[in-house]
Amino acid sequence: MLQIEQLSIRYEQKEVVHNFSFDVQKGEILSIIGPNGSGKSTILKAVARMLPYCSGTITFDQKNMRTLASKEIAKKMCILSQRNQAPSDITVRNLVAYGRYPHKKWFERLNDEDYAIVDWALEKTHLTHYQDQSIAALSGGESQRAWIAMALAQKPEILLLDEPTTYLDIAHQHEILELVRELNRETGLTVVMVLHDLNQASSYSDRIVVVKDGHCVQKGTPEEVMTEQMIQSTYKMEAEIQHVVWDTAPRIQLKNTVRS
């Protein structure tokens, strides 16, 4: 449903992403991994029209994204940043309700149908009990869920997540990724996410794209991508790939940093 072709992105004169191509299939979870500064978040932001790109095309549902109105894109695509700041006194419910605005004309009020969608999004993210609390009163994991709920209220076909787990402890990381998987399986939501943790990428993704220095190094299923060789060349780390019988996803055991 989303094709990225020959994408190049410049950041202050310097090209940071070079001729990058990949595509996203409807209904899959695709993860973009790579070292710090490799350009993975940059790519995601360019796809979400947060950053300009200098060449290449991004095609969404057979249409060049540059020709689509921002509001039309907002009805189908949504990005969630690593960290979001909101006015601290806004309630969870009100925040989530903003997700309905792309579907409204500038003078239109939210109707019962919109509120039903807001209720649904709150329920999906297990925030129904917190809906009248202010965002500031929530924990990190809960507030990340609130932003996901806002994204869900947008009713996107594709959700882009930029390091959704970075600022969370392991329990909340697990919770967020389980939620993403659940949404993907139950509603067919297509997900593209940037992740740091290789094991998380391996177990939660249908496909993985590996980025290094703005180049696409490899793409494929976790089994295809997660190799000792890839980890050594991309991260300069020695690693051991383990396969366990109860899970198809390869597990990555990191060993030593490779000194060059």
């Binding site: 947060m50 509001k71 907002a74 909101a86 500038w106």
Partner: peptide, 18 residues
């Protein structure tokens, strides 16, 4: 409404198609 949307931050506003 527009003032409310931009106080959520630029990224969120763009994300909402503004």
């Amino acid at each position: 409404r527009k003032a409310n949307i931009i106080r959520l931050g630029d990224q969120v506003a763009v994300n909402l198609g503004e």
